[in-house]
């Protein structure tokens, strides 16, 4: 349970971090480290070079930027949960973050870190996909913006190039009548989910005009289930039909706590559980 050896670089500005990362294929960014350190300790990952960006100033800004809520990469989960701009404009994010680990981990874990790490069981990547967020990365050629759905390519695999670093996330502000509802099933509060669902809904309980379902802890990345959402809108909740649809749409991958069959069941039940939270 000890990390393998690596070289460690503490940087205080973004350009230095980009320079080191661009030069070393093995270099990995360390922000809060709350997902990376367990992986290092368990030797699931053993990079030879770590670039600690946590002391770069100005990367933890939270603000309204046009029609979006911008969250700087280094804002910790606790920062986001206690931020008034977030509370006023996207309160659902605070409730979602309550499901992320425990206070001591949320004090250190960063928003950008969770987005960039791309853990398929994590809540924030699913939220980014569900809300059509843009992920802003900075590299040798300047900044670019990647849509969350195009950002996640596979298991812990993202569209970040070797010379790039996530600097912030832009979440479109919710429109009139738009709601984000969610839930997850896990063995202990704060643990990684066995299956989770974030639904982006336009309309009210009895009159849903548009529905987007994004599952997490189901496959190798946030799983969008558009066909299943369509089926729900056309036929309402029918366990067997929705289960069939989900099994054709998502490549369920079992883990230590739950088999792929169990995840499929939980995902199907979550549709009912999550949508029943909608108010009329």
């Amino acid at each position: 349970m000890k990390a393998a050896d690596f070289s460690y670089h503490e940087v205080v500005n973004l350009q230095d971090a980009i320079k080191i990362k661009a030069q070393d294929d093995e270099a990995v960014i360390l922000a809060g480290g709350q997902s990376l350190l367990p992986a290092l300790n368990m030797r699931l990952s053993s990079p030879t070079c770590l670039i600690d960006i946590s002391k770069i100033s100005g990367l933890n800004e939270i603000k309204i930027d046009g029609q979006t809520l911008f969250i700087g990469a280094l804002a910790t989960h606790s920062d986001v949960m206690n931020n008034k701009t977030v509370k006023d404009n996207m309160p659902c994010m605070i409730d979602i973050l309550k499901m992320v680990a425990h206070p001591a981990i949320r004090n250190k874990g960063t928003h950008g870190g969770s987005i960039a790490y791309g853990d398929p069981a994590a809540e924030l990547p699913a939220l980014a996909v569900a809300t059509n967020a843009e992920i802003i990365v900075s590299g040798q050629n300047g900044e670019r913006s990647i849509n969350a759905k195009e950002f996640y390519l596979g298991l812990f695999e993202t569209a970040i190039n070797q010379d790039e670093i996530v600097v912030g996330i832009k979440y479109p502000l919710l429109k009139q009548g738009q709601k984000i509802v969610f839930d997850e099933v896990c063995r202990r509060h704060g643990d990684y989910a066995m299956a989770g669902l974030i639904a982006n809904i336009m309309g009210s309980k009895n009159d849903i005009k548009d529905l987007k379902l994004v599952f997490f802890a189901t496959g190798d990345k946030p799983d969008v289930a558009d066909k299943t959402a369509r089926l729900y809108l056309d036929n309402g909740y029918d366990y067997d039909k929705l289960k069939n649809s989900l099994s054709s749409e998502i490549d369920f991958a079992g883990d230590l706590n739950s088999s792929s069959e169990m995840k499929l069941h939980l995902a199907t039940v979550l549709i009912k559980k999550v949508l029943s939270k909608l108010e009329n």
Partner: peptide, 24 residues
């Protein structure tokens, strides 16, 4: 556990609780 699950190593860093097994 040395992976952030058990909480036994929780200490205070700059006034905030953190897991000292998950901080280098």
């Amino acid at each position: 556990c040395e992976q952030g699950a058990c909480g036994a190593c929780t200490i205070e860093m700059d006034g905030k609780a953190v897991r000292s097994c998950l901080v280098l």
